[in-house]
Amino acid sequence: MAEPMGFFTDTTVCIGCKACEVACKQWNQLPSPEGGANTMSGDSYDNTRKLDGINWRHVKFVEQFSEDRVGGRWLLMSDVCKHCVRAGCLEVCPTNAIIRTEFDTVVIQSDVCNGCGACVAGCPFGVIDINPVSKTAQKCTLCYDRLQAGMEPACSKACPTDSIQFGPVRELRERGAKRVSQLNDGGESRAYLYGADEKMLGGLNSFFLLVDKPEVYGLPPDPKLPSRNLVPASMFSALGALLVALIGVFSFRERRSGEGEDRP
């Protein structure tokens, strides 16, 4: 296996230009909603709204201004699949359409997927949805085809301010940590890395530098694997079945015969 590869997205240098969104659509030849005749969301400059089967990059716009405008901020962030080391989508896929590649990235093979939707619900970040054209679940592939050819993913290549950086995860984490301390030294004490260590789903191969709480950016503060519920839910289901079976035995067993006469 090659070295794990990923993205480091430094939101403090993002200018919200959406080049990543278009470069991604260009390379992957993804359509636009309504053939491009979209409607305005009214939520700042975000009209893409969310990551889904045809938007594999999504720039978020968070306006933080008090009434007197002092210290106002406009947080911009290009969101993408996190390529989790322990990936929820991969766990729940029943067809093996979702694979972990030699780059430690998570890729949905469109020719295998049958559009059951399990991964859509299983992703802790809401990254995946059905592409209405292929009718399969799709998301960022971290440009698997380009990676195999030794090329950089389309979005990070296009990013004008290097807010999106691509590289070996190990190296990116070092870079991210350095940038955090640079920002901390410069007085931005709120800067931290989201998903750069093993604590979060074994590490996100695509991690972020944020300057506010994750939920401000629409990211879960505590993302979890869907499989966390597998055993308890199964146990409780079994318990339920057992209790019903007991009631059944109690209700239907032979010695109760004769009790069951209906009144006319």
Binding site: P223, N229, A233, S237
Partner: peptide, 24 residues
């Protein structure tokens, strides 16, 4: 119900008991 629990959706995956509920 376990299928619903083994997701990350609100409600569904916020309790391990939906399988039990649906089964019963």
């Amino acid at each position: 119900g376990v299928l619903l629990a083994v997701t990350n959706r609100p409600l569904w995956s916020d309790t391990p008991l939906l399988g039990m509920l649906l089964g019963v």
